[in-house]
Design a protein around this nucleic acid. Sequence first.
DNA 1: CCTATATCGTA
DNA 2: GTACGATATAGGA
Length: 994
Amino acid sequence: MKPGDHVFLVDGSSYIFRAYHALPPLTRKSDGLPIGAVSGFCNMLYRLLRETEKTEIGVKPTHIAVVFDASAITFRNKLYDQYKAHRPEPPEDLRPQFGLIRQAVKAFNVASVEQLGYEADDIIATYASQARAAGADVTIVSSDKDLMQLVGPGVVMYDTMKEKRIGEPEVFEKFGVTPDKVADVQALAGDSVDNVPGVPGIGVKTAAGLITEYGDLETLLARAGEIKQPKRRESLIEHAEMARISKTLVKLDCAVPLECPIDALAVASLDGVRLVGFLKTMEFTTLTNRVAAATETVAAEVKPVPVTIKFWPPGADGTGAVFAPAEDATGAATPMSGSSEAEAAPRRVTPSKTVSVAPGDFTPAQLVESRLAAAKEQPVDNTAYETVMSLERLDEWIAVAREAGHVAFDTETTSLDSMMAEMVGFSLAIECGRACYVPLAHRAGGTGLFDDGPIIGQIPFPEALERLKSLMEDESVLKIGQNVKYDAAIMARYGIAVRPIDDTMLISYVLDAGKGGHGMDELSERWLGHKPIAYKEVTGSGKAQIGFDRVPLDRATAYAAEDADVTLRLWRVLKPRLVASGLTTTYETLERPLVPVLMHMERRGIAIDRQILSRLSGDFAQGMARLEAEIHEKAGEPVNIGSPKQLGDLLFGKLGLPGAKKTATGAWATGADVLQDLADQGHELPRLILDWRQLSKLKSTYTDALPGYVHPETQRVHTSFALAATTTGRLSSSEPNLQNIPVRTEEGRKIRSAFVATPGHKLVSADYSQIELRVLAHMAEIPQLRQAFADGIDIHAMTASEMFGVPVAGMDPMVRRRAKAINFGIIYGISAFGLAVQLGIGREEAGAYIKKYFERFPGIRDYMEATKAACRRDGYVTTVFGRRAHYPEIAAKNPSLRAFNERAAINAPIQGSAADVIRRAMIRMEPALAAAKLSARMLLQVHDELIFEVPDAEIEATLPVVREVMETAAEPAVTLRVPLKVDARAAHNWDEAH
DNA sequence: CCTATATCGTA
DNA sequence: GTACGATATAGGA
């Protein structure tokens, strides 16, 4: 580096985002791979190398580097944890382009620089400073205002898109101060994009005035008392410390310990074959020809080079998409930073043998086939994994993950409960068979209470956590997990926000709901033909079970790394199936975004009043004891009322009561329906037993059990929502199940009243009115139903009026009740038998009702027949949003099994579409509340109801927002032919809010 | 100690 | 008639 040299420093990361938004979307012709940003970048870089002398800059570079952000966390996050906290995830079609642009830089034979823990801006600042010290000139290729503080003698910026030079006058125009004071102005004004706080009430204009008047930030803060405007004076005094922190955030670091020396940035000649090969792969025809001409390369003789594509473009339906190979030998052999090959080579984890395929060779379906074949071909070997015991090795694994652009991971903990579990270690997998386990908190020895302390040689927890965080929060690396909600919840407790993500469990769920479970072991056996080590095999079970922190490292590595390896393999098989099946949009709009939403809900939990529950337990116990005594007296012998077997023997054996039925296994049936019949005939014992059962149920399942779920630290109850448990798309709730809290009886509602808002808050319950019937009215296009919903008429009364020809006004409640039962029956895939049981009438009468109903609403019968036919044809049925539910036994020989599948197939699109609607509402709720500056927190979902905790002062403002989001949740994907109606109420407890 | 069954709470 | 999960009992290992 010497005077007269000219260093070009390209701000790669900001260019990517700017190009993406500024340029029209562009996809590769042969397969739809998004390449708009790559194209813009290549054209720019070529012009920089070849044509800058024709621009305002007037010179060609002697040295050039493209600088990227390597990680989401830097010293600035330690200083201020909110720094860049509100960055949205990059758009789906931009993500694969990060990696491609890095590969483009190398194809241009230009240094690509990025360093862990440093922002691109700081690296640029350091190079600029070194270049100036050596007497060279600097052009920073960026329009980012954060870099403008570097402008000065010998340093200019260049905006390639506007082809505009940014020198001191331009900086002054923007900030009202000279470049050396820009950081002071930014410190005062703050920055919403980077989430730099600044001083409230002070914008760029005011800040520039103040800095001009007082000279610099410190002087201003010292003399803030002299400011005349009272508001401004107080704000400055109060927020002086925030201003100082902001200054540190915006001030660029010129002393980054550079891994790639500045002299290594010297411009090298273009390798025509290499560059043309890359450009041909990208199918940039014009640029390919220009480069070929300039480098005297015969383009026709150059083969396209394989490139690494981090993950697939979504493709709305996937039908037309074709893919380049997901990986190849060059991807792993290409250095990622400007550091030398010699230094980079030994750090690399050796790639396994991979096949190189030219782009365009695969259709999605063929890709699925080849992936399936490959999955069976390369067996899982769980003895070949690495146990990572040094920070150096961990860094190497992370570097390889960054290069690959995706990594499968798994977290090992002390508990299955994500609110309690401590992280014990984590595993990573980068390609099939190439996985490691990083133990962090394993303890030696110990079958008893005492152990021999931590195993020595493990990486210290804080250091490992820092590295893990940088990888997990790296926007350009896709994190692949199995049931990511669990791992993300654990990591959230360690201050790590995992994103972007893919979840193999959810991919499987979208593809194969109804075809079996979606647990990892099951998927592995199904798709890979491999049975992974069972958790119990390494930890034992029952009394002898040990925590994962006591599992010896070799066993732990085999188990944990295998999980990551299997997850990666599953992803490679399942992810292309999404595109091939046209389900990418379903996955990306209804499943994946719900992961953080549910994680937040689970972590918030809900408060319960333990005093209420404890009092109820006492009341119920008393009632049970009283009933028990009476039952034993009437029975004439002691009987375990909780034992259906003993009850059956007593009632139908010893006492010989009439109406005995048998269960599927031949035992006496003693269900509530049977006992109710007997009670209605005047028998006392069944009545007493029913009462006892109710109390027993409420006590054991709710009042006794719920306090045991109160978390010791949060003092709240944290349920777990399962995303992939149902065939229809509904969520489920467990440990504890908060979706079946009693509401129908007065006694039961007392339990609901124990769910309370925290002081100063209320619970808000917002529920969809008749959502399933509305969905049915939409799908089957029933004119009377649509009209009734449009007019806000009582839907069951309308049904009764249509069927029985009676006016709605003054209707007999029994008539309405019958119509209501029929409406529910329709949703459940009605049968004469079921309706008869429900209404306590004969099969013939029930059949006549159904016939009558279909006469009045022929569209419903058409819908049902069409749904069954579609299910027989496709094996699945579809919701209005495209979710599928499979019923493989729809054509079973066994008539009752077949009928059951038909009813389920009729119900699934109705229940599932409603489930999709509320999922969409939940996904939009957090941003909608944030946009309205409301602090309401979503706590629970109960299928058609959402429960929030809202500060007292915000109730009025929150209700309309919640209602609006829920009522418009179907839009714009689907325009329902009926309106959705939401009722919302606030109260101190759940009973009163509902 | 583990699993199947019956029962019953919710939408 | 659909979709779930929790509990207690009972029986086999």
